[in-house]
C-alpha cells in the first residue's frame, strides 16, 4: 500500500526509508502557515495534499522527493 510522507525534515524521512516524500511548510505547522490569512493557509494545505495524492498515483522505483 503506497504511503505519502508529508514531513518537515526531508533528510530524516529519507534516512528512515520513506519512499514518497512531500516536503512540508515547517516543523510546528507542516500543513499550514499561521502568518497567512485563513484562506491562503488552507490553499497551501490543499496544494500539499494534492501533491501527496499525485505522489500516491505515481510509479516510482526508488525513493523520490516530490517538490
Amino acid at each position: 500500500m503506497p504511503t505519502a510522507h508529508v514531513c518537515s525534515i526531508v533528510p530524516i524521512s529519507k534516512t528512515v526509508g520513506a519512499n514518497r516524500i512531500i516536503p512540508s511548510v515547517a516543523i510546528p505547522h507542516p500543513l499550514g502557515d499561521p502568518d497567512k490569512s485563513p484562506d491562503e493557509e488552507k490553499a497551501i494545505r490543499r496544494r500539499l495534499v494534492e501533491k501527496a495524492l499525485k505522489a500516491l498515483e505515481t510509479e516510482i522505483s526508488e525513493q523520490r522527493v516530490f517538490d
Partner: peptide, 29 residues
C-alpha cells in the same frame, strides 16, 4: 518535541482533515 501552539490553534495544520473532506466531496478521492 515541537512548539504545539500552532497545532493546538488549528490541528488541521498537522492532520489536514478539512482539505481532505473537501477533496472527498469533490470526488478527487
Amino acid at each position: 518535541g515541537y512548539d504545539t501552539t500552532y497545532a493546538n490553534e488549528d490541528p488541521n495544520r498537522v492532520l489536514p482533515l478539512d482539505v481532505v473532506r473537501d477533496l472527498e466531496r469533490e470526488g478527487r478521492i
